[in-house]
Nucleic acid binder design. Structure first.
Length: 859
RNA sequence: GCCAAAGUGGCGGAAUUGGUAGACGCGCUGGACUCAAAAUCCAGUCCGGCUCACACCGGGUGAGGGUUCGAGUCCCUCCUUUGGUACCA
């Protein structure tokens, strides 16, 4: 008969609920510990076995930290806006809200079934108006801010208006110059338009992936999935809400240095931001005006033999000569129809000459301007100087179209391939400047100085990071709290008007236009502005799913506050998150977006820390029993409900932690679950008799054998250390070692078996509570102090020393602890087996490592 | 292509300031209990040689080299797998 896990688990889950065992009070004098899981999207499929892995890990740490005297915040919620519920609504006309509620109920039941110690009174749901009120509020904070590049921080937009009124556009590098007086003379609309360009949330016309069948834009990473399903996706320019994350590129990069995150995650974020240093250079057009390019190799400018513009570049029309018009037009059409992905896949370089030309300011020579889709409008200036001798792409292009290739950096063989490495400059001089003989870094510095002096260019830092497309043409998302007035201005809602509720719809089909289904709710869309008397139209786009997850950790701190997103005093106490665990699939997007919002809130004084998540770990993917990715079609999906029904939640938790290191990918194994289940049964039988009562010997005997005593103290030490380092698999192995040791003995010494229950508790909390209660305790063990160990009692008074001859193990020796080197050496030489290998040879060297080895080197 | 992580028994995995490779679990083998089975308990289990057995000997951490008295651990070259990313000038 297995132990009665069913009744035990139900009993203790009810106990914890009824006693609010895991409720976290707002105030405490204890040190705080904020332990966070990446909350799930509650899909219709229910929990899969991957979810509990991370959740169990944080639960173990949370339970352990409570016993260590920490005030622990460990909450759970739902990232519940999203396309799946909406697609279901499109097919069935069932409101996404009711689908979402059902799915949340399933997830909540399944998560509770695992005995995770969340404070359920802090549960949040991103689709709850009481929650998304604050998502909208943060949107408005961002909308109502600009990035002051001189102070390197976001500031309220009014400060920009004030600065413009006082100093004119000198505060805004890049803006066409105007004086304070000119600003003050502008119309409301003119001022509005200038400010709008500098807000951290702004509307821009950019090329996006539009899917007609779904009636929405798609993120780049979503495109493949829908194309496979037979939908067509095209690139078209559309007006979209954007967030100016690029303003934070440098800070996102720099502040990452302080984070205890996996190095691969930090590395990926660095790559995503893609910082590169170079120069912007203006090439004069032969017909007047100039063409700005970005290059990381200004030192190769003497080798720039042609120019390439992205097909969409605005200068193309001006450069194109009449004879090339047809070819250019045709090429641009073809390029426009290709998605950005298609362009990436094609490695073959194509292009068309515009017929126009520019002057290379270094050589003074006229060079042709081409268009080619290997130059992207979205990076740098959308145009490059092509240096075929020292860039592989330019080299391939120049070869294909027979454009001249000049060597300006020595070190390679440009007759065979482009040389992209560093080297000494050659063929690089004009009347004013020479790079010949200079190393690449020297040449860069020299030419940059010359470019600045002549006004041709300047050093700049460029990032791959692009602004965040922050709008979806969907119903099931947070409405963007903006009204478009008939005079062409935009008006943000005031805080009092939040939350802006989603209108109810009868049907959830795409609107048939490029607007979201919200456009069909005409009563909701059409508004009159009381202040100006103007008619207006609500923004019909909704926020992307990332929005709610950008700040949910803050809401957990103060989840029911009707007046603030989070009380500042509580925020200062709880932030930052001490431990954050979730899948590595969120490495770039979620974690980058959340850091970005956090920094804006920090700049505006709403949060006290520069970074939200101090320590981050990823759980690995759990594969099917066949070692392949779990999927319905392979039939290898493991359902947590079934596992819990058969072996109990404690076994499920224990197995997921015992499989291997948390962050590694590993296959499921039913046999493995049975193994840990057997272990739990062994624990049960050690404490309880056949009738399910406490074994009476636990009350009588109290002297552990020296071996058991040693095993106990070693277990306390190892389990504690392993939990701190999140090595749960080896912690569990140690628990097993102790139980094996204890089972050997007929005695049941309470002095070690009672505190052992506390060591087991973070891993198998239901069983531990039951045993604790059987031992005569009347309260939950949740806040019992973690047992201490005595290092002196772990050490044995004898140790086994390995005897080696020429590095090979020849014998073993049991000696008193800390035996001296002399004694060890003498004992070693006296050992029979060692003597056989030393005989007839000379000992040239002896290495003695105390308590470990003696190695005799013989010849 | 580039970046990152990882390769250890039949399987999941342990062991890193360089010091007994294979903890713990699974599986397997044998035994106890049972009419029998399940469950449970005990013993064994890296591979090979030799042995009644104990002992002993050889080999062994993806491959090859190197450093060292000693390398799974450090260095070099290569191979494989996984994840990410991809014309970013």
């Amino acid at each position: 008969m297995p132990y009665p896990f069913n009744t035990i688990e139900a009993k203790w889950q009810m106990y914890w609920d009824n006693h609010h065992t895991f409720r976290t009070e707002s105030h405490s004098t204890k040190p705080k510990m904020f332990i966070l899981d990446m909350y799930p999207y509650p899909s219709g499929a229910g929990l899969h076995v991957g979810h509990p892995e991370g959740y169990t890990a944080t639960d173990i740490v949370s339970r352990y930290k409570r016993m260590r005297g920490f005030h622990v915040l460990h909450p759970m919620g739902w990232d519940a806006f999203g396309l799946p519920a909406e697609r279901y609504a499109m097919q069935t006309n069932i409101h996404p809200r009711s689908t979402t509620e059902q799915n949340i109920a399933t997830f909540r039941r399944q998560i509770k079934m695992l005995g995770l110690s969340y404070d359920w009174e802090r549960e949040v749901d991103t689709t709850d108006p009481g929650y998304y009120k604050w998502t909208q509020w943060i949107f408005l904070q961002i909308y109502n801010s600009w990035y002051d590049s001189r102070r390197q921080k976001a500031r309220p937009i009014e400060t920009l208006a004030e600065a413009l009124a006082e100093h004119g556009s000198s505060v805004l590098p890049g803006e066409p110059p105007f004086t304070a007086a000119e600003w003050n003379a502008m119309s409301r609309k003119q001022q509005h338009d200038i400010l709008a360009k500098h807000r951290l949330a702004y509307v821009a016309e950019i090329p996006v992936n539009w899917c007609e069948g779904l009636g929405t834009v798609l993120a780049n990473e979503e495109v493949d999935e829908w194309v496979e399903k037979g939908y067509t996706v095209e690139r078209r320019p559309m007006k979209q809400w954007m967030m100016r994350i690029t303003a934070y590129a440098e800070r996102l990069l720099l502040d990452a240095a302080d984070l205890d995150w996996p190095s691969s995650t930090l590395e990926q974020q660095r790559n995503w931001i893609g910082r590169s240093e170079g120069a912007e250079i203006d090439f004069p057009l032969t017909g007047g005006g100039s063409m700005r390019v970005f290059t990381t190799r200004p030192d190769t400018i003497f080798g720039a033999t042609y120019m390439v513009l992205a097909p969409e570049h605005p200068l193309v029309d001006q450069l194109t000569t009449p004879s090339q018009k047809g070819a250019v037009h045709e090429y641009r059409e073809v390029a426009r129809r290709k998605s950005e992905r298609d362009r990436d896949v094609e490695q073959d370089k194509t292009g068309v000459a515009t017929g126009g030309s520019v002057i290379n300011p270094a050589t003074g020579k006229e060079i042709p301007a081409w268009i080619a889709d290997y130059v992207l409008m979205g990076y740098g200036t959308g145009a490059i100087m092509a240096v075929p001798g020292h860039d592989e792409r330019d080299y391939a292009f120049a070869r294909k179209y027979s454009l001249p290739i000049i060597e300006v950096v020595s070190g390679g063989d440009i007759h065979r391939e482009a040389y992209t490495g560093d080297g000494k400059g050659i063929n690089s001089a004009n009347a004013e400047v020479s790079l010949n003989g200079l190393s690449t870094p020297e040449a860069k510095a020299r030419i940059n100085a010359w470019l600045v002096e002549k006004g041709y260019g300047k050093p700049v830092v460029q990032y791959k990071l692009r602004d965040w497309l922050f709008a979806r043409q969907r119903y099931w998302g947070e409405p963007i709290p903006i009204v478009h007035l008939e005079d062409g201005t935009m008006k943000p809602l005031s805080e009092k008007e939040l939350p802006l509720l989603l209108p109810d719809l009868k049907k959830f089909q795409p609107s048939g236009t490029t607007e979201s289904p919200l456009a069909l709710a005409t009563e909701w869309v059409d508004v009159a502005d009381a202040e100006t008397g103007l008619r207006g139209r609500r923004e019909t786009n909704t926020m992307p799913q990332w929005a709610g997850s950008c700040w949910y950790y803050l809401r957990f701190i103060d989840p029911r506050n009707p007046d603030m997103l989070c009380d500042p005093e509580l925020e200062r106490y709880w932030m930052p998150v001490d431990l954050y665990i979730g899948g590595s699939e969120h490495t770039v997007l979620h974690l980058m977006y959340a850091r970005f919002w956090h920094k804006v809130l920090y700049d505006l004084g709403h949060v006290s820390t520069r970074e939200p998540f101090m320590k981050l770990r990823h759980q690995g993917i759990i594969l099917g029993e066949d070692g392949r990715k779990m999927s319905k079609s392979r039939g290898n999906v493991v359902n947590p409900d079934d596992v819990v029904a058969q072996y109990g939640a404690d076994a499920m938790r224990l197995f997921e932690m015992f499989m291997g290191p948390l962050e590694e990918m590993k296959p499921w194994s039913t046999r493995g679950v049975e193994g840990v289940f057997r272990f739990l049964n062994r624990v049960w039988r050690l404490y309880m008799d056949e009738e399910g009562h406490l074994n009476p010997r636990l009350l009588s005997s109290d002297q552990p054998t020296p071996e058991l005593d040693r095993a106990y103290h070693a277990t306390v030490k190892k389990v504690g250390e392993d939990i701190e380092a999140m090595r749960f698999n080896t912690a569990i192995a140690q628990l097993m070692i102790f139980i094996n040791e204890a089972t050997k003995s007929d005695e049941r010494p309470r002095s070690v078996l009672e505190p052992f229950v506390l060591l087991l508790a973070p891993f198998a909390p239901h069983l531990a509570e039951e045993l604790w209660s059987a031992l005569g305790h009347h309260h939950s063990l949740t806040y019992e102090p973690w047992p201490a160990f005595d290092a002196a009692r772990i050490a044995s008074d004898t140790v086994e020393v390995v005897l080696q001859v020429n590095g090979k193990v020849r014998s073993k020796l049991t000696v008193p602890l800390d035996a001296s080197d002399d004694v060890l050496q003498r004992e070693a030489l006296a050992d029979e087996n060692v003597r056989r290998h030393v005989e007839g040879k000379t000992v040239v060297k002896t290495i003695v490592v105390k308590n470990k080895i003696v190695n005799l080197v013989v010849r």
